[in-house]
């Protein structure tokens, strides 16, 4: 494990514990402002999108919007399966199989 990895893991561990314990021990003395609660509800979808979209559309820092980019078609198939099945495993299998199939055909 290199230093960067070690710092990332230990830093993430401390940061995460600091999201868990403070309000646990303050028991009811602190109320979270409703606006902050609302804001926080959007963070997970925002970060997930930021991880997905460039991975699908950008290759080595360049935009690739074409049919030769198999990830685009695979992403569309994955979204459909995810929407109807609500099942992560089914979504992953669909995605991988679509990329595999397209790579094999073309």
């Amino acid at each position: 494990m290199n230093n960067g990895m070690l710092i990332a893991i230990l830093g993430a561990a401390v940061a995460t514990y600091f999201t868990r314990f403070p309000l646990m021990i303050l028991s009811g003395r602190k109320e979270i402002p409703p606006r902050l609660v609302k804001y926080m509800s959007f963070i997970a979808p925002a970060v997930l999108t930021a991880l997905i979209v460039p991975a699908v559309f950008a290759k080595q820092g360049r935009l690739d919007i074409s049919l030769s980019n198999h990830y685009i078609i695979a992403a569309a198939a994955t979204i459909l399966v995810s929407y109807f099945s609500k099942n992560m495993l089914a979504s992953i299998i669909t995605g991988i199989c679509t990329v595999g199939l397209l790579t094999w055909i073309f």
Partner: peptide
Amino acid sequence: FAFAAAFIGILV
């Protein structure tokens, strides 16, 4: 692509 697919499965 499994990464993107897994995140799509959580996001949608």
